[in-house]
Amino acid sequence: MNPKTTDRIATFVLYTIAFLIVSVLFGLLAYILYHGFQRIDLQFITSPPETMKAGGGIGPQLFNSLYLLVLTLIITIPLGLGGGIYLAEYAPKNKVTDAIRLSIEVLSSLPSIVVGLFGLMVFVNVMGWGFSILSGACALTVFNLPLLVRVVEESLRSVPREQKEASLAMGISHWTTIRKVLLPVALPGIITGTILASGRIFGEAAALLFTAGMSSPDLNFSDWSFTTPVSPLNPFRPAETLAVHIWKVNSEGLIPDARAVADGASAILVLTVLFFNLFARWFGRWIYKRLTAS
């Protein structure tokens, strides 16, 4: 077989595989949205489950998912940036840093149920936070931190060496070079890693069953105190997220339209992840243009 024929066959196989993957993804997305749109309306999105007949809405669960996302990112991003910057710019090449990288690889492959049991033991019981949003956010931080650390490290290492050397040659300090030269150039990769971590937060259920709980109090959306038990912003209250709600509705089967509620909640979850990804990428490009000459 001559090289030209081999190249054509390989190209055809690769295009076929790509087409199959895209077809499966679009088919799954179309199936979820088609069945979910039959249930979605304004009342379903904004109302709590107990205020509607036959299953109710998902208002508190949607808010809990977004609040948990924000709280988790507030904890994860500074730690991930610090760890990635240390490994890329300050960590010496020795057995200790090799052990740290190996530990990060092991942690990134842990099953979510194991992270949930760890969170139950440490954050719920030892720390005494109980089933709460804060316990869930800390468990998800353990779950996502290895991913973000590796993404930040690889993004910083991918910056052309000449840019760093040029900055240092001008007498600029190492830390200022990291802030003003390396981080802005590495920002697109860091944004991509943050989006991946956010997607895992939206879709996680197993770890939250043991940390954030499977129920929510009757929230009072006119009370925005951080200490009131029924306040939406109270981080020490239990919180049922959309992913947990979908699992709960399907597993318990206590309502007559469980399938319709699950379909609607699944469609809302997919659309929320989609809109968040689009917004994060737009925001990342805007920040990148502001911090660089692009």
Rank of each mutant, 00 (worst) to 15 (best):
D98L: 15
Q43W: 15
V24Y: 09
S158M: 15
P235T: 00
G213Q: 04
G193T: 10
P92L: 03
F123V: 08
V114H: 06
R150T: 11
L28T: 13
L278T: 01
T11M: 15
V126A: 13
F279A: 10
T76G: 02
F236T: 00
A260Y: 00
I195M: 07
L254G: 03
F118R: 06
S216A: 07
G57C: 00
A18R: 12
W224C: 02
A197E: 05
T141S: 14
L79N: 07
D257P: 03
S215H: 06
L134W: 14
I74N: 03
Q38I: 12
T272G: 13
T6P: 03
G116H: 01
A137F: 09
S294M: 07
D41W: 05
S155E: 02
V122F: 13
A88F: 03
L148Y: 09
V122W: 14
G57V: 09
G199V: 00
N277A: 11
K4Y: 10
S155D: 04
I45H: 08
A137N: 06
M1L: 13
W129G: 05
F143A: 14
A206W: 06
V114K: 05
A212C: 00
E153R: 05
D218A: 15
S132P: 10
W175C: 07
A265T: 14
R161Y: 12
K93N: 10
T6G: 15
F44V: 02
L254N: 10
F279S: 11
R101I: 09
P111F: 07
A88N: 02
F226G: 03
S132Q: 08
T211Q: 10
I246Q: 04
G116E: 03
D223T: 02
S65M: 01
Y288W: 06
I191K: 06
V22T: 15
